[in-house]
Amino acid sequence: MMTKKLINTNKNIYELCKEYPEIKDILSDLGFEAIKNPVMFNTMAKITTIDKASKIKNIDMKNIIKKFEENGFTFAINENNERNEILKDLIKRLHNGENIE
């Protein structure tokens, strides 16, 4: 059985590629061609997560996860994402004058 390689969604792309160099090819195949550009890799990859990159390039995370899984990776999804989204929604609603109750 092949051991799954873990993708920590909190790490930036630069860190992930240093840990697993094959990620560059996977991301390039998905449409993130700039990853092969050394300048882009050494700048933008250091401040961008896979989730942020998917939003920038408008590529569905489901497709990204599927491609990574096909290449022996598994995602450690940030469990706080759902909680953070709920909190953001509550703050927006309070800011817009909605009753706390």
Rank of each mutant, 00 (worst) to 15 (best):
K55S: 13
I59G: 03
G97P: 02
E79R: 11
K62Q: 07
A34K: 15
T3D: 06
N63G: 06
K46W: 13
E98M: 07
I13L: 06
L16G: 00
I91G: 00
K67M: 06
I65P: 00
K66P: 01
I7W: 02
E98C: 01
L6M: 09
T49C: 08
D51G: 10
P21V: 11
I47H: 13
I65S: 00
E19I: 14
F75N: 03
T74P: 00
T9I: 01
I86L: 14
L27V: 07
G31Q: 04
N84F: 08
L30V: 09
S54R: 11
N71K: 15
K4G: 00
I26L: 13
K88V: 02
I56A: 12
K66R: 12
F41I: 06
N99I: 11
M2C: 03
I59C: 03
F68H: 03
N12Q: 04
I91L: 11
A53V: 02
T3R: 11
S28Y: 14
A34P: 00
T49M: 05
E101T: 07
N81Q: 10
P21E: 15
G31L: 06
F41C: 01
I59L: 13
F73M: 04
I59H: 05
K92D: 14
E69P: 00
G72L: 09
K62N: 13
A53K: 01
K67F: 04
C17R: 03
I35F: 05
I91R: 12
K62I: 09
A53G: 03
E101N: 14
N96T: 02
L87G: 00
G72N: 14
K36L: 15
K52P: 00
E22V: 02
F68I: 07
M44R: 11
R83P: 00
M1V: 08
K4F: 07
K24A: 09
N8L: 08
I56P: 00
N71R: 13
I59V: 15
K52V: 07
E82M: 07
L6E: 07
I35D: 01
F41M: 12
L90K: 12
E79Y: 08
K11A: 04
N10E: 09
L87A: 14
M2E: 14
N99C: 04
F73K: 02
E101Y: 15
P21D: 13
E33Y: 11
N12A: 02
K88M: 10
N10I: 04
P21G: 08
K46E: 11
N81I: 15
N71Q: 09
A76M: 12
K55T: 09
I77P: 02
T48R: 10
L27M: 15
L94I: 12
A76Y: 12
G31A: 09
N84T: 10
I64G: 03
K24R: 14
N8K: 10
F32L: 10
F32M: 09
